[in-house]
C-alpha cells in the first residue's frame, strides 16, 4: 500500500504524476525530450538506458515498464534480459556497451563514472552529446525509481499491465494525456 493516498486506478509513477501536477510537468517534458526527442541514439537504445538503471535500483515497476517499451521499440524481447545479465556479452553495439556501463555507474553514484569508461565510450564512437544524454537519462531514472519506491507505490504483478503500459508510452510518449486517465478506471 502506498505511503500516501493515491488513486487506486493509477499504480506506479502515474498516480504520483497526477498527485502533484506542477512538479510532474517538468519531469514529463524532460523525459519526453530525452527519450523521444531528436537524438543520434535510437528510442530503443534510450529505453535500454532507462531499463538498466531501473534494474540496478531494483525498481520493479520502472524496470518492467521500460523493458516493455524497449522490447516494442527494438522489436526484440531478448535484449533487455541479456543486458540485465551482463552488459559486455549482450547483443548491443560496442558503443552501447560503453554507454550502458556509464549508466550503470551513474546508478550507483555520479562519482563512479571514470575517465576510462568515458574514453571507452568515445573510442567506440560515442559523441559528447550521447555521453551527456546517457548520464542525464541515468540520473533521471534514479529520480523516478526513488520517487516510485520511496512512496511505496503499487507495482502490478500482471504482465499484461506492462504490455499495455509499454504500448501507451511508445504510442503517446511521456507528456500527460490530454484526456487524463479516467478511462483506466475499471
Amino acid at each position: 500500500m502506498p505511503h500516501i493516498s493515491l488513486p487506486d486506478h493509477l499504480p506506479g509513477i502515474t498516480g504520483l504524476l497526477e498527485y502533484r501536477k506542477d512538479s510532474a510537468a517538468p519531469i514529463r517534458t524532460l523525459t519526453q525530450i530525452l527519450l523521444r526527442g531528436e537524438n543520434s541514439l535510437s528510442t530503443g537504445e534510450r529505453e535500454l538506458i532507462a531499463t538498466i538503471v531501473s534494474h540496478g535500483n531494483g525498481c520493479k515497476f520502472c524496470t518492467a515498464a521500460h523493458t516493455s517499451a524497449a522490447d516494442i521499440l527494438l522489436g526484440d524481447n531478448t535484449v533487455c534480459d541479456l543486458i540485465k545479465l551482463d552488459i559486455l556479452t549482450s547483443p548491443v553495439s560496442q558503443k552501447m556497451k560503453g554507454l550502458l556501463k556509464i549508466a550503470a555507474a551513474v546508478q550507483k553514484s555520479g562519482k563512479h563514472v571514470t575517465t576510462d569508461m568515458v574514453n571507452f565510450a568515445k573510442e567506440t564512437g560515442a559523441t559528447d552529446m550521447e555521453i551527456h544524454d546517457t548520464v542525464l537519462i541515468a540520473s533521471l531514472f534514479c529520480l523516478y525509481n526513488k520517487y516510485v519506491d520511496g512512496l511505496a507505490t503499487v507495482a502490478p504483478t500482471d504482465p499484461e499491465f506492462y504490455k499495455n503500459l509499454g504500448d501507451r508510452i511508445t504510442s503517446f510518449g511521456y507528456e500527460r494525456l490530454p484526456q487524463g486517465y479516467d478511462d483506466l478506471k475499471k
Binding site: 553514484s109 555520479g110 540520473s139 533521471l140 529520480l143
Partner: peptide, 9 residues
Amino acid sequence: MFNRYVDGL
C-alpha cells in the same frame, strides 16, 4: 538526480 548529473560528468 542532480548530484549524479553534476558529478557523473
